[in-house]
Write a protein that binds this DNA or RNA. Structure first.
Lengths: 343, 343
DNA sequence: TTGTACGCGTTATCAT
DNA sequence: ATGATAACGCGTACAA
C-alpha cells in the first residue's frame, strides 16, 4: 500500500495560495492573513480532511510532543490511576503519552529511557520507583544527564537519586499516620509487612512505621518484620509466616493495600478473625479496599489527582512557565472496620 | 534552556567522514563501509552518546513508530492486562505505544483518533468497544477511511462496525459456555445482569446467554434481565433489584466478573448465601475473582496473551508480512465455588 | 569505498 | 497581505 499523504501543499493548491499562508492559518499566526484567503484555506482543509503532519512540525520546532511515563506495572491499579490522571489531562493538550512497563527490571528500564531519548521526548516521568542497583544507578545517571542536556523536562514521582525534580507521594508520612492510628487505639505489638527490598518506596514506608513507633517510645522489632512484595499473593504468604507469632501481635501494618488485602484474605481463610483477633491496616486506598471482609482501614493517597497535577505541571513547564509548582496531594486516614480499639 | 542536539553531522566530524557514511553505519546498510571507518564511527557515536533522531528518521521514511491504542479505561484490569501484553511485546521493538482513555465518551474517542491521524500513527488498535451512537458511527467512519488511505494499519479488538480487521474475543462463546455450565448443573431459572446498553460487547454476551438457553429449549425471560454497567458498583445495585425476585431465580450470570463480584459482595451483605441460596457466575477471570467469598466460577479470557498476540500481528503487518494471522485465544471454564449443583 | 545533492512536510526569515 | 527560500536531521540516488 502506497502511503499518499495530504500535505500543506495540496491545501495551498486548492486554496490558490502559498504553503506559507496555509501554515499561517493553521497556526493562528500573528502575521496578517486576509479574511478572504483564510476562509478559502479553511475550506480546503475541510475538503481534503487535512491535518498537519506533527512529525514534520516536530522536526521543525524541535518538539516531539511525546511525554514518556516509566512505570512498574500498568496493571497495578496504583499506577493505573496515576497514568489515567495524567493521560486525561495531557492528551487533551495534544500530547502523546508514551508508557513503558518495566516490571522493575533494570534492562527494561534502561531500554525505556533510551527509547525516549531517541524519540526526543519533551518530558519524562519516572514513576516506576527507583531501583537500588549499582548498574541501574550508574547508567541511569548517564542517560538522565543526556536527557537534561537535550532539554527534556524530567520528573520523578517516587524519590530518585538522580538530580531531577522529585514529587514526593508522602509515603513516609502515610506510613507514620496509619501506625499512629494503631497506637492511638491501644496497639503496641505491631507487625509490619514490607514491600520489595530493592524499592525506595518500601524503604520510606518502613521508615514511617519506625518513626511513629519511636515517637511513641516504642521499639521496632525485627522479629515482627515480614517481607512482602506489594502484591496480594505476597500478603497471603506473609499471613502464613505471621501465624506462628500471632500471640505476639495485635495489629499488622501492611506496606500497601494489596498486601493488606491478601493478608486479610488468608487470615479469614485460616479462621483468624479480623479485627477481633488481629487488626490489619493498609496504605493506598485501592478501590477494592472498601470491599474486603472487613472493609480495610487505610490511608488514602489520591493518586489520580496526583496524576492530573503532574500533567498540569508538565504542561506548564513545556510552556516555559517556570514558576509553577506541583500541587501537593495529602494523605488521608480512612477508618473502616479492620482495626479494633483495644484500650 | 537551549536545546543543543547532537546530530549525525557531529558524529561525521568526529569520525572524519561524511554524514552519509554515518547513516550507513547506523542502519547496517547494504552499502559497503570499510571496517576501519565503521569503527571510527562507532567510537564517535559512543563518545557523543549519539542516538539518531527518530523524528527526522520518521519524516524521511514516512513512519512515526507510533502505535495508538484506544481504550475505555486503563484502570479496568481487563484493558490494563491487554495493554500490558501489547506494550511488552511492542516496545521491545522500538515502537511507541500511545494510549488513550475515552471513558466511552464520543468526543474523547474522536479526539483520540484525530490525534493519531495527525501524528501519522503507523497502527491503531480500537480496543474501547464500539459505541452504538449515530454521530460516533458517522464521524468515526470518516476518520477510519482517512487513516486507511494514509496507510495506517487498523485493528478492532471488540467488534466494530467499520470495515477494519476485527479480532473477536469470543465474547458470545464465553457467555454461552458459562450459561451452558449453569444449565448442566440443573439450573433453569437463570437471571442475567447485562453490561452497558450502548456497548456491542454487552450485546454479544447477552446473545450468548440467549443462545445457550435456546439450545436447551429454555426461554430468556425479560423479567430476569437486570441492567448493569460492567462495574462492581453496578453489580451491587443489580443485587438489590434482584432481591425481590429471588424466589424466581436459582442462578445469575453476570456480564462480567466485576459485576459478579459486586453481586456476590452485596448478596453477602444482605445475608443471602452464595451459592447455597443462589449461584453466581462471571466472565473474564479477573485476578481478584479467585479471592471473592466464595471464589468465583467464571470463564477465563486470556487477555494478556491476546495483547501479546495483537502486538505480534501488528509488527508483522508493519513489516509487511501479510500472511500472518492473529493467534486466537480460547475461553476456558474455571470452576470454583460460586455455583451449586442442584440436580 | 566515499561523498554530494536533494527531498521528506513544515515553518521562520526575509523579501515584495 | 502574500510568497520564495532556507532549514530542521536524516536517508538515498547518484556521482566519483
Amino acid at each position: 500500500m502506497v502511503r499518499k499523504e495530504i500535505t500543506i501543499k495540496d491545501v495551498a493548491r486548492l486554496a490558490e495560495c502559498s504553503p506559507t499562508t496555509v501554515s499561517r492559518v493553521i497556526n493562528n499566526s500573528e502575521h496578517p492573513v486576509s479574511k478572504d484567503t483564510a476562509e478559502k484555506v479553511e475550506a480546503a482543509i475541510k475538503r481534503l480532511n487535512f491535518s498537519p503532519n506533527r512529525i514534520a512540525q516536530g522536526l521543525k520546532n524541535d518538539k516531539s510532543n511525546i511525554i514518556g511515563v516509566i512505570v512498574h506495572d500498568i496493571c497495578d491499579s496504583y499506577f493505573a490511576q496515576m497514568i489515567k490522571g495524567m493521560e486525561e489531562f495531557i492528551s487533551e493538550h495534544e500530547y502523546i503519552v508514551n508508557i513503558y512497563n518495566t516490571s522493575r527490571d533494570v534492562d527494561k528500564e534502561l531500554h525505556a529511557v533510551n527509547m525516549l531519548k531517541a524519540n526526543r521526548a519533551d518530558a519524562v516521568v519516572f514513576a516506576a520507583g527507583a531501583l537500588m542497583d549499582k548498574r541501574y544507578e550508574r547508567e541511569m545517571y548517564n542517560v538522565v544527564e543526556q536527557l537534561k542536556s537535550q532539554g527534556t523536562i524530567l520528573l520523578g514521582v517516587t524519590p530518585h537519586p538522580f538530580a531531577i525534580k522529585n514529587i514526593s507521594l508522602a509515603n513516609q508520612k502515610a506510613a507514620e499516620m496509619i501506625t499512629d492510628y494503631a497506637i492511638e487505639n491501644g496497639h503496641q505489638k505491631i507487625a509490619f509487612i514490607s514491600g520489595p527490598q530493592n524499592l525506595y518506596t518500601s524503604y520510606l514506608r518502613k521508615q514511617g512505621v519506625i518513626k511513629s513507633l519511636e515517637n511513641h517510645s516504642l521499639q521496632f522489632k525485627q522479629e515482627l518484620l515480614f517481607e512482602g512484595d506489594f502484591t496480594f499473593e505476597g500478603g497471603r504468604k506473609a499471613a502464613l509466616s505471621l501465624l506462628n507469632k500471632i500471640d505476639q501481635i495485635t495489629a499488622v501494618v501492611a506496606a500497601n493495600d494489596a498486601t493488606a488485602l491478601g493478608l486479610i484474605w488468608e487470615l479469614n481463610n485460616q479462621g483468624v478473625k479480623v479485627p477481633a483477633e488481629i487488626s490489619v491496616l493498609g496504605i493506598d486506598d485501592l478501590p477494592e479496599a472498601k470491599y474486603s471482609y472487613p472493609p480495610l482501614t487505610t490511608i488514602s493517597l489520591p493518586i489520580y489527582n496526583l496524576g492530573t497535577n503532574i500533567g498540569e505541571y508538565l504542561l506548564a513547564q513545556l510552556n516555559e512557565e517556570y514558576d509553577i509548582n506541583i500541587k501537593p496531594v495529602e494523605p488521608k486516614l480512612l477508618t473502616r472496620d479492620s482495626l479494633k480499639n483495644i484500650e
